[in-house]
């Protein structure tokens, strides 16, 4: 996770990809290393973000195809599309992870309305920020599962806070246990799925 430190953040993801490609000997086209290099990086980054965003949408469609979980709190679900955001956070850059989270919320806003969009945005941003904090604080000591759980709990909590602000005050004590336990379950599920989906993401790397 060294990419989290130093360097202009905006370039980290593609720098890393480029460096990996070079070291793997995959990138042997000299054209992409000369004057058009910046252009090529930008394009790569854009395409990769777009494809991961598309995957996020597919994952949320898959999730919605299943019957809803019998959960007593609005907004509690596995959040499979967070897998795509987590992948971007772990292997690309913060910037890309945030842009995918924001795009995801925009998509929710367009398809399911303003309230759902705000919930998605608040949950997504808080979740990403907490995962980032855990990654910066614990470096490699934190496992995917631990990061995923902290992200899921933050996601639930962010949505709950948004609901409380949009509507009228809600009593957190009654729901904190539910948010914590469902966050643990969702976090484990997304971490395990991420592990299996990583190879598919790797194939996206053009």
């Amino acid at each position: 996770m060294s990419k989290a430190n130093g360097g202009p953040l905006a370039w980290n993801g593609s720098d890393r990809i480029l460096a990996e490609k070079k070291s793997n000997g995959i990138l042997n086209d000299p054209a992409s290393l000369d004057g058009t290099r910046d252009e090529s990086r930008r394009t790569r980054k854009l395409v990769l973000s777009g494809m991961i965003f598309a995957l996020a949408l597919v994952l949320s469609i898959v999730e919605n195809a299943f019957p809803p979980l019998p959960m007593p709190v609005p907004g509690v679900k596995f959040g499979l599309s967070n897998i795509a955001v987590m992948y971007a956070l772990f292997f690309l850059s913060k910037g890309q992870a945030y842009s995918i989270a924001v795009l995801k919320s925009l998509f929710v806003f367009m398809t399911r309305g303003l309230i759902a969009g705000i919930l998605s945005l608040s949950g997504g941003i808080l979740s990403l920020t907490v995962m980032l904090l855990v990654m910066v604080l614990f470096r490699d000591k934190a496992s995917y599962t631990a990061i995923s759980i902290s992200g899921a709990i933050a996601h639930n909590t962010g949505q709950f806070i948004a609901v409380s602000f949009i509507y009228t005050g809600m009593y957190l004590w009654a729901y904190l246990p539910v948010l914590l336990v469902s966050g643990v379950i969702a976090g484990i599920v997304t971490a395990v799925l991420l592990r299996f989906i990583i190879p598919a993401f790797e194939r996206l790397r053009l």
Binding site: F90, S143, Y144, A146, I149, V184, I188, A191, R195
Partner: peptide, 13 residues
């Protein structure tokens, strides 16, 4: 970074 560590069980608990 690992998928799962033993300390995670403690965290979950």
């Amino acid at each position: 970074m690992k998928l799962f560590k033993k300390t995670d069980i403690l965290i979950i608990a």
